[in-house]
Computed example of a mutant assay.
Amino acid sequence: MNKLRFVMMWCLLLGILVSCGDKDDDASPAAAVELDYLPDTKGSTWNYGGTNPYSLTATGNTKVVDGKTYSEFETKQGNETRKSYLLKEKGVYTGIGMDPSLSNDISLTFLKEETPVGKAWYQTNTINGFETKMTFTIIAKDITKTVEGKTYKEVIHVQAKTSVIFMDMEIDSGVNTNYYWAKGVGLILTDAGQHGNIPLMTYSIK
């Protein structure tokens, strides 16, 4: 199966997001979201480069799904524009429609702020006709990470492993993807090793 498709899952946030080049030096706009690992204030933008460039914008709109209110984002990649949705509940971040190659109704919980380092959470979905299991683990918290020459503080490192369930057996896809989330900014780097990486190039938080 196509490993790259799993590697780039919701890197397109859904990716969920964010680097500083055209950001105003005035820190006041970020004050309201300084405790948040994925701001959703209207007009906030993130531009990503690397192996799968895209841009993300928080529209300020919302959508109710199963009685819960999600924030809307718009992702542009090449000539394609699509919508994705984010739910934040007590430090738990869940996205819908973050990967254009997947069904728009697939929901992924990609970050849990309060989960201890080393502890994992799991999620299963049917993706492209395969029963798929994703294992997310907090590798480190409150670290410093430099991406494209900019240093971010209070970063959470999450690693995701993907496996496929076939005939009741769990088969490792061999892909480990590392996500780095900066407080008050969002996703600053998606690193899939030899499969590529997507760094945050510029961002603006409103």
Rank of each mutant, 00 (worst) to 15 (best):
Asp168Val: 10
Phe136Ser: 12
Glu72Gln: 15
Val64Lys: 06
Thr115Val: 12
Asp99Met: 00
Thr81Ile: 09
Ser84Met: 09
Met98Ala: 14
Val147Thr: 01
Pro116Arg: 05
Ala30Trp: 12
Trp121Met: 06
Tyr180Lys: 07
Glu72Pro: 04
Glu148Asn: 14
Lys133Ala: 08
Val117Trp: 09
Ile16Pro: 03
Asn2Phe: 08
Met1Glu: 14
Gly174Asn: 01
Thr151His: 08
Ile171Asp: 02
Gly91Gln: 04
Phe136Gln: 07
Ile156Asn: 01
Ile127Trp: 05
Met9Glu: 15
Gly95Glu: 09
Met201Ile: 15
Val158Phe: 05
Ser101Glu: 08
Phe166Val: 14
Val158Ser: 01
Leu17Glu: 09
Phe6Gly: 00
Met169Gly: 02
Glu131Gly: 03
Leu38Tyr: 07
Thr124Ile: 08
Ile156Pro: 00
Thr177Ala: 11
Trp46His: 01
Cys20His: 07
His195Arg: 06
Gly50Glu: 11
Val175Tyr: 02
Pro29Asp: 10
Lys206Thr: 13
Pro29Cys: 10
Asn178His: 15
Asp22Val: 15
Val64Pro: 00
Asn79Ile: 11
Leu4Ala: 10
Leu35Gly: 09
Leu108His: 14
Asn176Glu: 12
Phe6Ala: 02
Arg5Trp: 02
Tyr48Trp: 11
Glu72Lys: 10
Ala30Cys: 09
Gly193Thr: 09
Ala120Trp: 05
Thr162Lys: 01
Leu187Asp: 02
Trp10Ile: 13
Val147Phe: 07
Val92Met: 03
Gly193Phe: 13
Leu13Arg: 10
Thr59Arg: 07
